[in-house]
Every structure is written in C-alpha cells, then in structure tokens.
Amino acid sequence: MTEHSSQITFVRPGGVATQAFADGAATMRICLGYLHDPDDGVLAEMKAKHDPVPWQSAQVRDDAIMAVETRADLNHDTRARLLEWIAATPYFEDT
C-alpha cells in the first residue's frame, strides 16, 4: 500500500513562507512578493532595518534583483538601496 501525503505552503504577501523539511522547517523568502507589505515585504524590511529573511536560493534572489531593476514604481535612490539590501541578504543554501 502506497501512502500519499500532501503539503500546502502558504506564501505571505511579502513573498515569505515556511518550508517543511524532513528534520523541521525554515522560514525563507521564496519570491519578491509585494515590496510594500508592512509585515514582511522587502522594502518594509529594509526601511525598518529588520534582520533580513534569507532567500530560498541564489536563483530566487537573482530573480528578485532583476525584477527590482526593471520596476517603474521605484525612484532611483530607493531602487539603489533596495538592490544593495537584496544583494547583501543571504540565501537559504548559505545559512
């Protein structure tokens, strides 16, 4: 008899989720999400100087950098600071 299991992952508006692993779980940023989300958006995180939530992987972090580079709703100064913040944030594979 084959056992089936399913797992549901809820991604908060700021792109943060808790991923389950065999030996526990880890909270990570799995996508850029809504930058301005007051709970866990990257822009809110940066402005409040919270400890950054690690990215799921280098690829997810690089995708977020590319997305921020092309956003039309950010002024030059905010974009530059945000890009610096994202680039300095570790990704889960490094933590």
Rank of each mutant, 00 (worst) to 15 (best):
D40W: 09
V60R: 01
P38Q: 05
C31K: 02
V53H: 01
D62H: 06
K49D: 09
H50K: 11
A17W: 12
H50P: 01
E69G: 00
R61W: 02
A26R: 11
L74H: 10
G24W: 15
N75F: 06
R29L: 09
G15R: 04
D62G: 02
D73I: 10
D39V: 09
G33Q: 04
G14M: 06
N75P: 08
A20K: 14
Y34W: 15
H50L: 14
E45L: 06
T70E: 07
A58H: 03
Q56E: 13
K47L: 14
R12W: 13
Y34V: 07
T70K: 12
R61P: 01
A20W: 09
A80K: 10
V53R: 05
G33V: 03
T27F: 05
F21S: 12
G15Q: 07
P90K: 10
A67I: 09
W55M: 01
M46S: 03
F92D: 01
Q56A: 13
Q19V: 15
F10M: 13
M66T: 13
L82F: 04
A88H: 04
A87P: 02
T18V: 15
M66Y: 05
F10V: 15
V68Y: 00
P90A: 14
H36D: 14
R29H: 05
T18A: 08
H50Y: 08
Q19S: 07
Q56I: 09
I8M: 15
L83T: 11
V68K: 02
A58W: 04
T27P: 03
N75I: 07
S57D: 07
Q59L: 13
G41S: 05
